[in-house]
Design a protein around this nucleic acid. Structure first.
Lengths: 209, 209
DNA sequence: AGTCGATTGTGACATTTAGCACAATTTACT
DNA sequence: AGTAAATTGTGCTAAATGTCACAATCGACT
């Protein structure tokens, strides 16, 4: 099954004409880690849908940055989607995290198809909704939880996406959570003493409780 | 011009059949301050669109609550909208803040119309997008700004909605911003000393700079 | 005028998080 | 093995915010 067929199946795109449109106008591409998919303050030309790999989406403001979310397989960046609908510049940066396969759709079709094809409508609507809910979770987390808990949540989440061993530096973790390296180091050390994880060089091993 | 005509004009609902549908199935109602429009964990039966007044939307969790947004005239609660599309229970509470006029649409039409009528599609899509952007702003604010600045932002925002005199207690302010009364009292006092505002009993007067 | 409950002011202190400094450790590369 | 750069550990201190206690003030109502 090729990438387009994967997409059609996952999004339940059954309309033959839409399939044909996507095959005609969509562009399949494979990108190494670290490639910018969209850049903040630039116009969006394509809506990217992740097939394999993942894309990190964040905002930058006055030297500081804030992680918004990751786009995982068969999802799209809903802020790009929003930008597509409003035809404005991107509010965010997005960059591949791994070797990533994308299908890119020119923006001029994205809105139009939403009104023409049920399945595409469902896809765009669901994207908005799930992104909104994700952001809401992050917001609540930031509002209610202390860094320690947010850190642990992040590790658990990363574990679910891969395995027990999370390959990341303390500095990078601090960046993801919007704090400083020292804070992360101290909290991790504490968790290690509590037996919840084990620290290695640039790698954290979670211990099943 | 009656409330429905206001709605049609604001949302650019020009399709005669949609107008007729809304007139047939929509319910116009006026509610005093403090009435629950939706309740967390309950099923949504109606999508409420505010005509006059405003609705406060928030989440509760373990005794604490978090303000999400206000629904102002000619807007709808996008979380209700999301719930409508996914047919699940409400994630939030919503309550009228003032004497408020609403038009309520039974949920079974909301999704269907989005695909049938351009104007309704635009309305629902725009609602999602603007809500998402609002939440994003709040998220950034929470992540980057200190309470003092968030407090001042809140006051400025309230002022824009009404006038220079904001009628609210320190306790209520603390609640809106997710902090405690003492913190608010101290910060307000400090701002008063800086000449940015003047404190009265249950009222704050902003000073134009 | 007097009472009561809600609101506001404020000092003292605790906790959480951030920032600085510097040492120790690990990896990569010669 | 030896060096450089990145990463990690940690003591000390500062800033922001939260908590407790209690007094003062205000408004509503008798």
């Amino acid at each position: 099954m090729n990438e387009f067929e994967v997409l059609f199946e996952a999004l339940k795109i059954t309309e033959p004409t839409l399939q044909k449109e996507i095959l005609t106008h969509g562009v399949l591409g494979q990108y190494p880690k670290g490639v910018f998919v969209v850049e903040q303050d630039k116009y969006i030309k394509w809506l990217a849908i992740v097939i394999h790999g993942s894309v990190r989406v964040w905002q930058e403001e006055e030297e500081r940055e804030i992680l918004l979310y990751y786009v995982n397989p068969l999802e799209t960046c809903s802020l790009s989607l929003a930008a597509t609908f409003k035809d404005y510049k991107s509010l965010v940066h997005a960059r591949t995290e791994n070797n990533t396969t994308l299908i890119k759709i020119p923006v001029r079709f994205v809105k139009q198809w939403s009104f023409e094809y049920q399945s595409w409508f469902r896809f765009t609507t669901q994207s908005f909704i799930t992104s909104y809910e994700d952001l809401l979770m992050s917001y609540k987390s930031l509002a209610f939880k202390r860094i320690g808990e947010r850190l642990y949540d992040y590790l658990i989440y990363s574990k679910e996406l891969s395995e027990n061993k999370i390959h990341i530096s303390h500095k990078a973790l601090a960046n993801e959570l919007g704090t400083t390296r020292e804070v992360i180091s101290r909290l991790l050390k504490q968790m290690e003493e509590e037996g919840r994880l084990k620290l290695h060089f640039k790698m954290i091993e979670l211990i099943n409780s």
